[in-house]
Amino acid sequence: MKDLSELDFPETVRYTEDHEWAAVDGEVVRIGVSDYAQDQLGDIVYVEMPEIGDIFEKGDEFGTLESVKAVSEIYMPVGGEVVAVNEVLVDTPELINQDPYGAWIVEIRATDVGEYDELMSAEDYIEMLRG
């Protein structure tokens, strides 16, 4: 397992306590999992994703990541409707390990973009990980 100092936490996205990241563009929010999450999980071998049009509230489980170690649920950082899923991950789930901030999982149209502002900054997230 890597030391926190070896992991990448860009300041251009925001983070949840469950280790998802979210990036906002207008009312569309792109969602993935943090470098810390992928490092903890180990090799990801399968990603279960929702369907376009599915509607979730903030905190809802919207999919699972299957790693060599375990099955992990992933949760919505903000509520909204799924407008895109990253189909590339169906055949190459390892992209989440290789590039966790490039390998987004879903894009949603946020019900309330204000929820994005409540997420943690990189600084706050690192602080939380340090415990």
């Binding site: 890597k2 060599v68 170690k69």
Partner: peptide
């Protein structure tokens, strides 16, 4: 060598190294 460690059979053992369990 960067092993991800875990307890097994009372021992602190490597689960995988940086190459990853799949490789």
């Amino acid at each position: 060598h960067g092993a991800n460690m875990a307890r097994f059979g009372g021992y602190d053992m490597p689960l995988w190294y940086p190459a990853g369990a799949r490789a």
